[in-house]
Computed example of a mutant assay.
Amino acid sequence: MTAVYAYGSSGYRRLFGVAYRILGSVHDAQDAVQEGIARWFALTEEQRERVREPDAWLTRVVARICLDELGSARARREHYTGIWLPEPLIGELAASAGAPERRDPADSVTLDERISIALLVAMEALTPGERVSLVLHDVFGLSFDEIAEVVGRSAASCRQLASTARRKVQARRKAQQVDPMDATDAAGTARDDVVAAFLNACVGGDLTSLVRLLDPGVVSRADGGDHVRAARKEVVGAETVARYLLGVVSTQTRRVTELVPRIEPVNGRLGIVTREGDRVVGVFDLEIVGGLITEIAILVNPEKLRDRIA
């Protein structure tokens, strides 16, 4: 088991994928996985031999740790300065959040390798039980009997929790005119071209070109925490967001003299990462539908960007 759950192994990546989707925090997810592995090794040899499927056992244990953590995490977020956004997965970190292919893609939300920050934000509206049930069933294919062991409710109740969660997320996405299955947003050349055009317009200070890339109802959210000044409320509307973004870029450029923005993998698809040397100072995650940017997540809180070195 030590080799199987070494950092970076497929077993570790699976557990991390469970924890990150539930908690939306890289560090909390890593802590949950380490705690789960520690509990495995705390069992006696005889107890471990009685576990027929160690992978399934560890998945349930880590999910339960995350479920317990969600309550205190939500309390902390209620007192968070400004807008709270999940920690981003940059470059190789994104590979640590992989999930297996779903056995049955029917009646499921797109929560696979495209763990967009916008989708994680939408999941913040779910109760802890709904979130855990949705992630474990729709992404990792656990049965509702297995999920019941984690949530502490009946299998039928967990089925209802997952169904309710699915409807909530889909309703939010529909209200924002986002199709979870939209091919442009998923990946590919069309999406990548929009990301590149977005970066060029921001760096070049081209307001007209930037506005053309934005959906009329585009929403921008920024997370600076207690450390970096950022908009404390959502910024909405193409021209308003465009002017705001150019202001953000101008401010960062003045504050950080050797700022280098690059297109890199962010949460399993291309986004924009700005660095000063090896230090990450900003991350932009874009939601793109029909060739237009519908949501922008800007992370500049250094506590959420620490240790992000490619």
Rank of each mutant, 00 (worst) to 15 (best):
S108Q: 12
L142Y: 05
A95R: 13
A106K: 09
E101Q: 11
P100M: 09
S143E: 11
A122K: 02
L119D: 11
A97E: 12
L119W: 03
V135A: 01
D145H: 11
S133C: 05
V139C: 12
P100S: 10
T127R: 10
A99Y: 02
S143G: 13
L119Q: 10
S143V: 05
A118G: 15
V135I: 13
E92T: 08
L111I: 15
D138K: 03
D112T: 14
I147S: 04
A118P: 12
G98A: 14
R103P: 11
I117L: 15
P105I: 06
R131Q: 06
M123S: 04
F144Q: 08
V139Y: 01
L111T: 09
R102W: 02
L111C: 09
S133N: 05
A95K: 12
I147A: 05
V135Q: 03
D112C: 10
I115T: 15
T110K: 10
A106I: 03
L142S: 02
G91T: 02
I117A: 13
D107F: 14
E113S: 14
A118I: 03
A94S: 15
I115Y: 04
H137V: 01
P128Y: 01
M123D: 02
S133M: 03
A122S: 12
L120P: 07
S133V: 05
F144R: 06
P105F: 00
G129A: 03
